[in-house]
Design a protein around this nucleic acid. Sequence first.
DNA 1: TCTGGGGTCCTAGGACCC
DNA 2: TCTGGGGTCCTAGGACCC
Length: 420
Amino acid sequence: MDKVFALVDCNNFYASCEKLFRPDLKHTPVVVLSNNDGCVVARSREVKALGLKMGAPVFQVRDLIEQHNIACFSSNYALYADMSNRVMTVLEQEAPQVEIYSIDEAFLDLTGIDAVYDMACQIKAKVDQYTGIRVGVGIAPTKTLAKLANHAAKVYPATGGVVDLTERERQRRLMALVEIGEVWGVGRRLSKHLQARGLHTALDLADADPKMIRREFSVVLERTVRELNGISCLELESMAPTKQQIVCSRSFGERITQKNELKEALAKYVARAAEKLRQEACLAQVLQVFIRTGVFNPNERHYSNSASVKLSAPCDDTRAFLAAMEPLFESIYRPGFRYAKAGVMLTDFYQPNTYQTDLFYPEEDRERSKNLMGVLDKINRQGRGHLFFAAQGVTPQWSMKREFLSPAYTTNWNSLPKVY
DNA sequence: TCTGGGGTCCTAGGACCC
DNA sequence: TCTGGGGTCCTAGGACCC
């Protein structure tokens, strides 16, 4: 039986979440900013119409923002994550198989369902009714084509937000209209190379020789070509695969010049990364840390370095990672720079009980570690940062700038929206 | 002066083995 | 003057995604 995938994608997701609780902004242009209120990372429909670019640094578009009275919001991930969960819950109720692909997108497996188009319309209506979030739906025999169908649902309002691309003729008609860079898996670099070879539209890519594509580009792009021709190469992955790395990094609200402050920042990221690791129920053996100055100012001396260490055994104890971080930091720190960003990465993951233990680390210590971390996490689930390590410092001067943060409307009792 | 954060996969090349 | 062949594993870097 032919496969049928649907891609459901929330419209302007972050901006929509902000608007949801601010009916007064219903027709106002809205942008959501990255951490430190640095870049534009989401735009409402009105803002897109104004031509304000995704990823634009705020200071470069400040005039445009003032001129059009664009409402700015700092990223409120607590809100977006909760709204995302609500949307995904509806999808899981409506569809037999769901792959949550990102915070605002999911693939559905609708193979074997008659009247797929009607079902997609129903799902769209239900998400809107239950969450207030508008979605677009693209239907096709492969994931790559479903992405393309979803793109069409967005670009052509006449579609009403649902596009069924099951028919080959429709697929080809659409692909002829779509630039090659819009294809899922074709980024900026590939786009340039492909255009240099005379391939400009999605259809050009679909009609390219897969053997040539593999030889000249990669096996990944070859798969894309086949997918564009209706041959499904990418399965629905309804089980979230276990993570292979955990990264925690931040740009600072202000440049750091003090050594101890930089170390405290790293300690904080180590603690957060270890917490995430325990949430995943994983153990990690390699810790990497990095620090760097700003990268954009050409008049400034630049420095960037990283170092990593392999622990004697995989673990998930924050204390062990903190102890390992210190010498790494000492080895890469250089005084006299204005540091802009730092981060840590955990890799080399193991499942508990499937690894070689450290001969000199007794079982009872492991038990105590597990209990201690358990208590730590339990307390911090009541509110992040209730309990922390002294190494993290108590009065960070460098914390993130979030000047335009909206309330945690859906996840904090004290921030529930009030209706008068 | 001010430019985000967190992931995955693939490939090429080097080290090493027999 | 002439110096093999076949393989694995690891890492860094590059591409992509949201």
